[in-house]
Design a protein around this nucleic acid. Structure first.
Length: 504
RNA sequence: GGCCCCAUCGUCUAGAGGCCUAGGACACCACCCUCUCAAGGUGGCGACACGGGUUCGAAUCCCGUUGGGGCUGCCA
């Protein structure tokens, strides 16, 4: 095992660019990053892009920008696995020369058929039966190369989170590690790259655990074939992130795109904090600055059972982080949602892969009506009412729209369906035209109206709220009116009044 | 089917044999606060999968059962 107390570790995050950045990947990246930061090591990013059919360059860009957003930019890389062909070929040559590999001409159908026959004969062992193992077939002709797995013995994986895991070699089939086209398969390419990049710690998802004994065998065979003695990396397999059904998070059916969470207005610190809590606990408190996580995180303490990715808890944490922002920082953080800058990152850029629709719409008001100073004046009361930044525009749209937002349900409930509403609106219009214009005065005056019509303030303010702000729920009324201004407030009151009491 | 992993409130977790009448957080419920909505405060509901051992003593150690999950591709 690598002595990490004397040699700074080198850990790698090795995603394949086949889609949006998966939250499970983000967690793996985080644990690598934390480990490396704690030990003064190097965080290497390696893009495993050898699946030409599925990978696309924009997914690589997505990985890089997501890591950047989360404050976990790599120290080294990105390296591209596709650029490591020479190293892969050299490894394949050495392995072949040493006799660790043999060519196999079996087709999938032939293998399956023989498996069926074995099963019928009472032998339940699945997988490849070693048919070509001693045939001495030459390479070429599109033949894949298999690794000759020992029939007896045990591969012991020393796992930093799980302890020793033993795999009996007789259960490990002769697996393919070179494709028929001569290219290395994942299991080999991954191990070879770890060797050439001098990786000391492999920290990845538990789904990779079953492939680890193969990589350990390959590592030993490579050492023998190349006449070197590279130390095996230390392995750590993190628990899977699962959905409500306890199944591994899937790109198809679960909301796993980090880009989507970013678009919805989750803060990177909150997101990272939540991710750290999946399978691990900082102790007394769970909402903690990254410095504390950095101080306390230990791979040995990572939970071994899967963790459910709970958006509700994430949302709660995000709300706490949002409220902890200074007003200035909050205003700045809201910019992409309330006043998107052309050419810069905008939330609407992320579209749902299934529907193609953006998860976040651009602001409802035209850009020229937006006023940063006006927004800032209400920012404090906005801040404590949102959990995600994408909720901000709807709270402040009344400030920047030409008229009160039109929400039929609210109108029906508070004005059309309330016979006392016209009176209240008329009283408010009269009073607001004359009173002092600040939130306390407005509060006072409105309270007077409420008393005069025999209602509690809570009930009396509803028609005014809907007439001016458009909805029954929203920001505190008097703060809002104070910022909107007397003229516009009165204009909207008059408009609402005209709408409920049509001229005879 | 085979191999491997896992098992504390609905969820994330604390718990390294006595500090456990099992703690916290999210969610949920109630109440308080209150100009709506939030936020905040107080309280409540709620778990050691089961069965055997080991031990004076087990959520913690061992075995088994059950349940869940992962892998089982010439994808990564």
């Amino acid at each position: 095992m690598t002595d990490s107390t004397t040699t700074p570790p080198r850990a790698r995050f090795a995603p394949s660019p086949t889609g949006y950045f998966h939250v499970g990947s983000a967690r793996a990246a985080l644990d690598n990053w934390l480990f490396v930061r704690q030990h003064g090591g190097t965080f290497v990013l390696r893009i495993e892009d050898t699946d030409e059919a599925r990978n696309r360059p924009e997914w690589t860009d997505g990985i890089i920008s997501a890591l950047d957003w989360l404050g976990m930019a790599p120290d080294e890389g990105p390296y591209f696995q596709s650029a490591q062909g020479d190293a892969h070929s050299a490894a394949i040559e050495a392995l072949w020369e040493s006799g660790a590999l043999y060519a196999c001409a079996c087709t999938r159908e032939e293998i399956d058929e023989r498996t069926r026959q074995r099963a019928a004969a009472g032998d339940p062992t699945p997988g490849y039966d070693g048919f070509c193992r001693d045939l001495g077939l030459p390479r070429g002709d599109g033949r894949a190369l298999r690794f000759r797995t020992p029939d007896e013995g045990v591969v012991d994986v020393h796992d930093l989170v799980r302890g020793d895991v033993e795999f009996p070699q007789r259960a490990l089939e002769d697996f393919i590690c070179v494709k028929g086209n001569g290219k290395a398969l994942f299991v080999l390419a991954n191990a070879v790259d770890d060797r050439t990049m001098a990786i000391s710690h492999v920290i990845r998802g538990e789904d990779q655990l079953p492939t680890t004994p193969r990589q350990i065998m390959l590592w030993g065979a490579l050492n023998r074939a190349e006449g070197v003695d590279l130390p095996l990396p230390a392995y750590a397999h993190l628990p899977l992130l699962v959905n409500e059904q306890g199944k591994k998070l899937s790109k198809r059916r679960d909301p796993v795109a980090v880009e989507m969470y970013r678009a919805q207005g989750f803060l990177p610190d909150a997101f990272r904090n939540y991710l750290a809590l999946l399978g691990w606990s900082p102790g007394d408190e769970e909402i903690v600055p990254v410095a504390v996580i950095l101080e306390r995180f230990r791979l040995e303490d990572v939970q071994r059972s899967p963790a459910f990715f709970d958006v509700k808890k994430l949302s709660h944490m995000n709300g706490v982080y949002v409220r902890a922002l200074s007003v200035d920082d909050f205003v700045a953080a809201c910019r992409p949602w309330v006043d998107p800058v052309p050419g810069e990152w905008v939330p609407g850029a992320w579209a749902d892969p299934d529907t193609g629709a953006p998860v976040v719409s651009p602001p409802a008001w035209p850009p020229e009506r937006y006023d940063a100073g006006v927004f800032a004046a209400l920012a404090e009361v906005v801040q404590e009412r949102v959990t995600m930044l994408s909720e901000v525009p709807e709270l402040v749209d009344f400030l920047f729209l030409a008229d009160a937002p039109d929400d039929p349900d609210s109108w029906q409930k508070a004005i059309a369906g309330d016979e006392g509403a016209p009176q209240i609106l008329a009283d408010a219009l009269a009073a607001y035209e004359a009173c002092a214009w600040d939130k306390d005065a407005l509060h006072e005056v409105t309270l007077g109206i409420a008393e005069s019509v025999g209602r509690k303030l809570g009930k009396a303010q509803a028609p005014i709220r809907v007439a001016v702000l458009g909805r029954t729920r929203g920001l505190p009324l008097f703060d809002s009116l104070a910022v909107l201004g007397r003229d516009e407030t009165c204009r909207r009151l008059a408009a609402a009044l005209a709408r409920v009491t049509p001229a005879p």
